[in-house]
Design a binder for these strands. Structure first.
Lengths: 226, 226
DNA sequence: CGACTGCTTGATGTTGCTCAACGTGCGTGG
DNA sequence: CCACGCACGTTGAGCAACATCAAGCAGTCG
């Protein structure tokens, strides 16, 4: 029961952590918790952005479609706010978000959130800090994906899952080859070739979606464009 | 004289516009106004980000260097805050900013800014709105520059200067071919070829840095990747 | 005048996309 | 149960796009 209250939530964001009991009460009564299975869409591009979306646990892909091509902007690990910029600008979702692992999501009423920004300076400041970091992350991904060749991008994605998501040299890719391609901005054939090549050269051990990083140094080297 | 006070400043940001006289007074006493000539660097990548940087008039390129390659992230037109995300995260500049036209810059004391966020909810809210829009712009540039071929990117850059910056079908590029290449993520030779091609096909009239857009429709078409 | 910078143009090589074929595993329906 | 379609993955061949290399031209400055 207490797990279903914001007050005792162990996944509070930095901003929520500065709220007092009364404010948490308010937050709680404007909060809907929803469980998404892997593959389900959490927010849909171009739909109205009516709620603040916060992932408590799980893994999510942020993606956009322009009709023909699908592009995965980034993979986000809980805990995190998913679409604050959409909330605060034109209230339209500028991208979709889909669970790629089972994911627990809190939807907060936007007005409540906005009220806190007005009434609680520390809360506002924490939100700004969070948005700043998120923006800088986007920036660095932008630079990466723009200056690397395809091999570097694929290596970079492996490093990302290895280091940032699983922190384990043996892991299972939560996405298929096409999605890897959508992340790297290439084709599934190219991804397949790169992975085979890494496998042949003993940099990774490849078995379907299961990856084992054998030569971390070399993989890092390639991802930094060698 | 009154031009040198924040109170009467005609270039106030939305956030500054909600400040009262007393707060503007405070802002004013923490503000340094500096004039940059075209070509001068305003903030330097990896340096400490000690001030809020706001451009009142002028044009600025945001760029990063990884040692060998230079990448122009975007061109920003006044009025705008340049590096809020750097201010609010690790206080390190994650990119450089250089004037590409004569530019008037206000440097504000960060602490004063932070105080306003704590004490004035409307101010905080306006900052968040501004950051949201900026982030979404970054997002769309990211998507564009990732899904377009080189010709589309070069066309897109021309459209950007034509529509967003000068709003005039005749304009002078504020940057050279190398910088165009750094924006498009290509080489100066490729940029040169593309521009010549557009010229030959009667889409633009090219004379050094002077561009006249002759066939707007076609240029838009190409920039949307045709 | 010569050195230098910025720009253009052509020739050549490489990268990575496209197209095509084929294997595998899975779910559906006969 | 098998037959079939379908999604996913791998691999090879050919080709287009683009970077690289190289040469030359115009404008500028000492």
């Amino acid at each position: 029961m207490s797990e279903n209250l914001c007050q005792g939530c162990q996944y509070k964001s930095p901003a929520e952590s500065v709220l007092n009991d009364e404010e948490l009460d308010q937050l709680n009564s404007s909060c809907a918790r929803v469980y998404f299975k892997s593959g389900e869409m959490i927010v849909k591009q171009n739909a109205l952005s009516t709620n603040v979306v916060y992932i408590k646990t799980g893994l999510v892909k942020i993606h956009v479609s322009d009709g023909e091509k699908e592009k995965i902007i980034r993979i986000m690990k809980a805990p995190a706010y998913l679409c604050l910029p959409s909330n605060f600008s034109d209230r339209i979702n500028h991208f979709s978000a889909s669970a790629i692992e089972d994911t627990l999501v809190c939807f907060f009423d936007f007005q409540t959130f906005k009220d806190f920004i007005y009434s609680n300076g520390e809360f506002a400041y924490q939100i700004i800090m969070g948005m700043s970091e998120s923006q800088l992350q986007n920036l660095h991904e932008f630079i990466n994906s723009n200056q690397k060749n395809t091999m570097g991008k694929v290596a970079g994605i492996l490093v990302f899952f290895f280091k940032d998501i699983y922190d384990n040299r043996m892991f299972n890719l939560p996405i298929n080859r096409q999605e890897l391609a959508d992340m790297a901005g290439t084709t599934r054939e190219s991804v397949s070739r790169m992975l085979s090549e890494f496998d042949n050269e003993g940099i990774i051990k490849l078995k379907g979606k299961q990856i084992e990083v054998l030569n971390e140094k070399r993989l890092l080297q390639i991802s930094q464009n060698g």
